[in-house]
Computed example of a mutant assay.
Amino acid sequence: MKKVFRLTFLTTIWLLLIYSTYELGMWQLHRAQAMNVATAVKPDQPLIALTDVASAGMNLPIKAINRIVYADGIYSTSYIARDQKISEGKLANLDVRLLKLSSGHSVLVVRGVASEPLDVINSDIYLTGRLYPRQNVDRAFAKPGELSRIDPALVVSKENPFLYDGYIVLQSEKIGGKSSSNTSFIPTPQISQQVAGFYWQHISYVVVWWFMGALLLIAPLFPQFRKPKKVLKSGVKK
């Protein structure tokens, strides 16, 4: 009776371990699939006002990243952001402006590739562009009138105490009610909000868990896991 109970108990544990490795593998597979969907490029949503998706002085909401927004105001300050990546393997110096809205709040705007000296623009501005999160890593050593990275924290001052987080990269611009002749626009692709490498990390976990399950499945075939046979010692007659 004890032998049957022990065999049943060990078999149950063995099957539970195999089932657990299978389920853990499926869990990692589902996470990889969910991440793949989350990082896929999505169709752009309708044009929306900057003030409807973000608030000045607050962190940029995740839902606002990659949105095509519009805003109007005047350019109050101009900067150059050097050594910015605009495409694979291509760096450029960018024309960055501080757009002051009618509310008194401001937002950083990337007009495109900088042509030095920067154009002076005093007219009213209406623009559309894609909203990106602020940069956290310096791209270059900044001199006066330059930005080491495109980050509103670098331009906060008594005159501009409340800025919108992130920055807008232009897609269209009207100056004084007329379409801008600006031809230095840069590409505005959607950015991924996840690290692509994590997808393959989850896939590797799937392989590991299912490999362990396969080892457990064939474990009874190995002699080491079988009950050792008793060795009968033969007596020695004197």
Rank of each mutant, 00 (worst) to 15 (best):
residue 142 A to C: 08
residue 210 W to I: 04
residue 230 K to D: 14
residue 230 K to E: 13
residue 203 I to M: 15
residue 191 I to Y: 06
residue 156 V to C: 02
residue 138 D to L: 08
residue 176 G to T: 03
residue 136 N to F: 09
residue 194 Q to P: 08
residue 159 E to G: 04
residue 192 S to H: 04
residue 169 V to L: 10
residue 176 G to S: 04
residue 158 K to S: 12
residue 176 G to H: 02
residue 125 I to K: 06
residue 147 L to V: 00
residue 174 K to H: 11
residue 163 L to Y: 00
residue 157 S to A: 04
residue 188 T to V: 09
residue 175 I to E: 13
residue 200 W to T: 09
residue 128 T to W: 00
residue 215 L to H: 07
residue 162 F to C: 06
residue 168 I to T: 05
residue 194 Q to S: 12
residue 211 F to M: 13
residue 121 I to A: 12
residue 191 I to N: 10
residue 177 G to Q: 04
residue 118 L to W: 06
residue 114 A to G: 07
residue 164 Y to Q: 00
residue 173 E to D: 11
residue 173 E to H: 10
residue 172 S to Q: 13
residue 162 F to R: 11
residue 120 V to L: 12
residue 190 Q to T: 01
residue 214 A to C: 00
residue 209 W to C: 14
residue 146 E to N: 07
residue 182 N to A: 02
residue 174 K to Y: 10
residue 135 Q to F: 04
residue 189 P to T: 01
residue 222 F to Q: 08
residue 116 E to I: 13
residue 140 A to H: 08
residue 119 D to L: 11
residue 203 I to V: 14
residue 144 P to K: 03
residue 229 K to E: 14
residue 122 N to G: 09
residue 129 G to Q: 10
residue 176 G to W: 03
residue 190 Q to D: 02
residue 154 L to E: 04
residue 202 H to G: 05
residue 182 N to C: 01
residue 155 V to E: 06
residue 135 Q to Y: 04
residue 228 P to F: 05
residue 137 V to M: 11
residue 117 P to T: 03
residue 213 G to N: 01
residue 136 N to Y: 08
residue 221 L to P: 10
residue 130 R to D: 03
residue 172 S to N: 15
residue 140 A to P: 05
